[in-house]
């Protein structure tokens, strides 16, 4: 029984941190630019494929440093793509109604899908975890793979870094000012459009990093973007749009829902997850953890 409980909690944390890694960049971009970026899942997926291509040079025996380097390469590549997307899409749609921006990012997601299918094909690809992380730990009857512990730690580290930067540094305060009132921020001499650009770059780099860190966590296929963007949307909605802390807490909450559902309702994956999101939206449309109602 104790083993079951530990397994459920452990599975919840794997799901939670994997999803948080994707949701962090999504909620960051939404918080500052107020753009709900559908294509985030697509760039996460491409990040995973980029890391796969880097790691395929090492064959089956991957050292940990190479795994981390591949994640950083994916992150830099997606950050660079962020510049292009910001210039070509986000800046041009600044004065357009929100629904058109949403449609444009949706279209970008389809483009990502198409690019992946053209370059890497439709087959499932997989990467084995780095050789230092192939062990398992036995804890009270539960089996905990060290690679999954690595995924959980990655999520926690990314959260702590983001939270520190947003709340404890001057750059973070500037971001918060712009999120609240971009016009006034411009008046007091902050270069708003440059901050927007760096936010997009950071958001995309986070997507790439997530893709690289999670590349061995699941197999790669063109469906990956859709699966993760829906999970990340759920987390961002439940946590309150734009809040990194909210996304962190919500990912753990929804991870528990998902793990319980996988244990007790194995024939209906996802039903409890979407039902919970629908319920949260009905009770508190602004998200469980947001301080004020969205207007």
């Amino acid at each position: 029984m104790a083993g079951d409980l530990i397994t459920i909690l452990f599975n919840a944390m794997i799901w939670a941190m994997a999803t948080f890694l994707v949701a962090s960049g999504l909620t960051l971009v939404f918080g500052i630019l107020h753009v709900l970026n559908f294509s985030h899942g697509g760039f996460f997926m491409i990040g995973g494929y980029v890391a796969y291509t880097v790691l395929s040079m090492f064959g089956a025996d991957i050292p940990l440093w190479a795994y981390l380097v591949a994640a950083i390469v994916a992150s830099v590549a997606m950050g660079g793509t962020g510049v292009a997307v910001d210039t070509l899409v986000f800046r041009r749609l600044k004065s357009v109604d929100g629904v058109y921006v949403l449609i444009a990012t949706y279209a970008l997601l389809l483009v990502c899908d198409g690019v992946v299918k053209l370059i890497w094909g439709l087959n499932y690809l997989s990467v084995s975890p780095p050789r230092e992380l192939l062990d398992v730990i036995f804890l009270g009857g539960a089996i905990l793979p060290t690679f999954s512990i690595f995924v959980i730690l990655s999520g926690v580290v990314v959260f702590l870094v983001l939270d520190y930067v947003l709340n404890r540094t001057s750059a973070g305060r500037i971001l918060q000012v712009i999120a609240i009132d971009p016009w006034m921020a411009g008046v007091v001499g902050i270069n708003v459009s440059s901050v927007y650009r760096w936010t997009v770059i950071t958001g995309f780099a986070l997507a790439g990093l997530a893709g690289g860190l999670l590349v061995a966590n699941q197999s790669l296929s063109p469906d990956l973007a859709g699966i993760f963007i829906l999970q990340a949307f759920g987390v961002v909605i439940v946590g309150g749009m734009g809040s990194v802390r909210g996304a962190f807490v919500a990912s753990i909450f929804l991870g528990l829902v998902e793990a319980l559902s996988a244990t007790y309702l194995p024939n209906y994956p996802g039903v409890l997850f979407f039902a919970t999101i629908a319920l949260v939206l009905i009770v508190r449309p602004e998200g469980l953890l947001s301080r004020q109602a969205t207007t």
Binding site: V96, I103, V115
Partner: peptide, 20 residues
């Protein structure tokens, strides 16, 4: 094969960006 997503996505993006 594989071009359909690119076609739908690219077309949608082009329309939203340049011919709203």
């Amino acid at each position: 094969i594989g071009i359909s997503d690119l076609l739908v996505g690219g077309l949608l993006l082009a329309v939203v960006l340049s011919v709203p």
